[in-house]
Simulated assay, not measured.
Amino acid sequence: MTGPSSLPDKQAILTRLSSGDFDAFLYDCDGTLADNMGAHKASYRAVAAMYGFELDDAIIDELAGWPIIQVAEEIKKRYHADFDPVVFTQQKNTMYEVSFIQETQPIEFVVEHLKAHAGKVRIAVVSGGSRASVSRTLRMLGISNLVEVLICAGETARGKPFPDPFLAAAAKLDVAPARCLVFEDGLPGVRAAEAAGMRWIRIDHV
């Protein structure tokens, strides 16, 4: 659907779409709760420039939700670049934490949705970012105390678009996957939710 411009309208639509017999809401972080994808893209571009190539950051949208190291591996493959993906990931995380994370703003209608449902359903955040970065972001958004379970990059055998992170969150919450609703902005996250047997809402379509 085409997203309405009014914040109350978006809140109402999200509330309506998420109504149902759910025991847990599982939110992605970057691009779903946090309006920070521009900052993440800038940090990827800055590290790519250190290695002498100009990164088309459309790849970040394409791979939204992937663990950062897997994004680095895909960048290396597509650009035939000469870098260690582990080192690239460390540099990207440092660049983001030092130079860009302060630009983070809430995606207000999603943050308010989480706040309104905390205590009514179980709450988890499932992200392809590092635990340090995601934890800091949730603190900046003022919701870290409302998140019961946090699953981040490297904490499951496979990341999105595989179901492992969402299944791990459901297991830690002790909620059946079929009774979880996922909130995602990226297609890999949607695919992961589907593979986990969970229903989902695509935030960038609200």
Rank of each mutant, 00 (worst) to 15 (best):
P4F: 15
D9P: 06
A12D: 15
R16C: 09
L17Q: 13
F22P: 02
L26N: 02
D28R: 04
T32K: 05
L33C: 04
A34L: 09
D35C: 06
M37H: 07
A42G: 02
S43K: 01
V47N: 03
D57F: 00
I59S: 05
I59W: 03
I59T: 03
I60G: 01
I60Q: 00
D61R: 03
P67A: 04
E74M: 09
E74Y: 01
I75Q: 05
K76A: 12
D82V: 01
F83P: 06
D84H: 07
V86H: 14
Q91M: 13
K92W: 02
E103I: 04
Q105N: 10
V110I: 14
V110L: 08
E112M: 07
K115L: 12
A116Q: 13
A116F: 08
G119Y: 12
G119W: 12
G119M: 12
A124K: 10
V125N: 09
M140Q: 15
L141E: 11
L146Q: 15
I151A: 10
T156D: 11
A157R: 13
R158M: 14
G159R: 05
D164G: 03
F166Y: 15
A169N: 09
L173Y: 12
L173I: 11
L173D: 06
L173R: 07
V175K: 07
A178T: 08
V182G: 10
F183K: 07
D185T: 08
G186T: 02
L187A: 06
P188K: 06
R191S: 11
A196I: 10
G197I: 08
I201T: 04
R202Y: 12
I203S: 01
H205L: 11
V206S: 06
